[in-house]
Design a protein around this nucleic acid. Sequence first.
DNA 1: CCGCTACAGTTATACTATATAACTAATTTG
DNA 2: CAAATTAGTTATATAGTATAACTGTAGCGG
Lengths: 172, 172
Amino acid sequence: MGHGDFLQLAQNYVIFAKPSGPKPSGNGRHAIINYSVLSEAVGYRLRRAQLAVFQDFGESFAAEGLRPADFSVVLLVKHNPGLKQSEVAEALGIQRANFVAIVDGLEGRDLVERRKSETDRRVQALHLTPLGEQFAENMLTTWQAHEDRMVEKLGGPEARDELIRLVNRLTE
Amino acid sequence: MGHGDFLQLAQNYVIFAKPSGPKPSGNGRHAIINYSVLSEAVGYRLRRAQLAVFQDFGESFAAEGLRPADFSVVLLVKHNPGLKQSEVAEALGIQRANFVAIVDGLEGRDLVERRKSETDRRVQALHLTPLGEQFAENMLTTWQAHEDRMVEKLGGPEARDELIRLVNRLTE
DNA sequence: CCGCTACAGTTATACTATATAACTAATTTG
DNA sequence: CAAATTAGTTATATAGTATAACTGTAGCGG
């Protein structure tokens, strides 16, 4: 099964919650709360963890203004130059309609280039620009630092592998 | 550290991707794609897994029109009757401003009740209505079936415990 | 070759979740 | 008591996602 082969519903199922603030100002008193099954609910804990990781990701790339989707697109285009726009979109599970704006953004920053295919003029083949290639190098360095922090939190590469192995079962 | 104690940034860090469709219509041909580091990136795989779990959650509760946030609120109010609105919100990492609409919805369905505190008239204490109590029972049954599916996918309760243990490290 | 169908990309639109600021009313504190 | 704080609310903005409709192009069967 390919990375993009997921089921889909006609809706948005989002969000148990999102991390709250660094204590808006807080009087320091916290109610003791019974979380019941939430404490060990796969979806809830997974969501919390994912938000924490994206939080770190966002801080890592705040200066570049790079969002996870942008990162993924640059990465895939770098490693698969000439893919059709729709192929990249599908690989990442992004609807082609929504993918347009993402590519617009990257093209506007001169990181990615749309090249009309000679053999099929409907197709926009995606390539990194020279600037994009350079950007991708730095991007991967920044990303690796982020990933290293996550792996460290997890307790090392073995723990990371175990986590990946487990979560992959949920998407198969 | 309480469940609600997370860092926060002034932004949204969302989304590597979201599951794409059941093949829009598809010619069956798939480009072979090099995912590079994405295949084992903690954030990416975590996000994919979380979406898959929420997908199942959404299907489970499609009839009830219950979203994850609603579920969590009903659960917390059931197990912590009389908590202040803002305490529930903070526990779930939901901003109090956004929490208003959630409670409005649950109150409108006669599942949750706002009771003005006698000792502090600013406070809305949350309680389940009798209907809400009943609803919570069914809700938990439905939820348990969902959770069981997830645990089965993971390979059993031990795998689930291991997963929870790992992801919790990311939120600590 | 023509017409039908499928496909790639795009535009427009709507909805959900979230973030921020400002406001009201009530309470606490100096 | 006045000033600051708190709880809840309202309004508004933004990001991510979903859906439909449209344009232009390609391919196929008669």
